[in-house]
Simulated assay, not measured.
Amino acid sequence: MEKKLIVQALVKVVCGIVLLGLLLFVPAGTLNYWQGLFFMAILFIPMIVAGFVMMFKCPELLKKRLNVKEEQSEQRTVILLSGLMFIAAFLVAGLNFRFGWLILPDWVTYLFTVVFLIAYLLYAEVLRENEYLSRTVEVQENQKVVDTGLYGVVRHPMYMTTLLLFLSMPLVLGSLFSFVIMLVYIPIISKRIHNEEQVLAEGLAGYREYMDKVKYQVIPFIW
């Protein structure tokens, strides 16, 4: 196991915890924002567990997941927009708690915690099914089309799971306003998918046939 990979993963997690904590609790004006603490727990505990599993069982996949350097200029724009969306949504969630603009009832937090955790499990299944899964849009050496499991249902199950994850996040945090901000993710991933499928259709053998076989991109019978 590479020491560099371990350090890189730990640094990313620690930075993520610190950054998210600042985005939530500074605008909230308190650490007693229980939905914020709860959300950080259900976000980072499974993330750390999954990271350790990948580190020992599939370090190459972990390397790919840690790599965020996009070659495609269009994808760099997508990443920038996604980052701004997250910053805005988390800041608004904290402010919403602080000023009590529109606090959703606790049952909403609990309900969408279940949705969030189910999406996390689906995310893990996607990682298990596709060893070529990268955070960047690229065609890898010796890459093959994966068309089984969730990939036999939609062409981009990773985006299906992230859509569930991201739209449930603000509801776990109790903020309807943040949920509205997170809806921006839909056109963002639509743009990403359009570019990604162009790259895959041009560079990955069999992908055009796969597109004909599996009709839906993200949501069965809808999208």
Rank of each mutant, 00 (worst) to 15 (best):
G149F: 08
I181L: 07
L163A: 09
G174N: 09
S134Y: 08
V146T: 08
T148M: 06
E141W: 05
L163G: 15
V180Y: 03
F177I: 14
V180M: 07
G152W: 00
F177K: 03
L173W: 15
V146I: 15
H156A: 00
V172A: 07
L133S: 08
V146W: 10
V139H: 10
F177Q: 11
E138Y: 05
F166A: 05
L167M: 11
Y159D: 01
G174Q: 05
V139I: 05
F177M: 12
K144F: 10
Y151A: 05
S168Y: 05
S168N: 09
K144E: 14
F166M: 06
T136L: 01
V154K: 00
R155P: 10
L171T: 10
L171V: 08
L133P: 06
M169A: 15
Y132I: 06
D147I: 03
V145N: 12
S178Y: 04
T161Y: 00
R135D: 08
V146D: 06
F166N: 06
R155M: 01
Y132R: 07
Y159P: 10
S175H: 06
P170N: 04
L176F: 15
M169I: 11
L150W: 01
L150K: 03
Y159C: 05
S175F: 04
V146L: 04
L167I: 04
E141I: 14
R135Q: 13
H156M: 02
Y151V: 03
V145H: 08
D147L: 03
G152N: 04
S168P: 13
H156G: 01
L173D: 10
T162I: 00
F179V: 04
G152F: 02
V154E: 00
Y132N: 09
R135K: 06
V153L: 11
L133I: 12
P170H: 01
L164T: 12
N142W: 09
T136E: 13
Q140V: 04
S175K: 06
L163Q: 09
Y151W: 07
Q140T: 13
L167S: 11
V139W: 03
D147K: 02
K144L: 12
T162H: 02
G152S: 05
I181P: 13
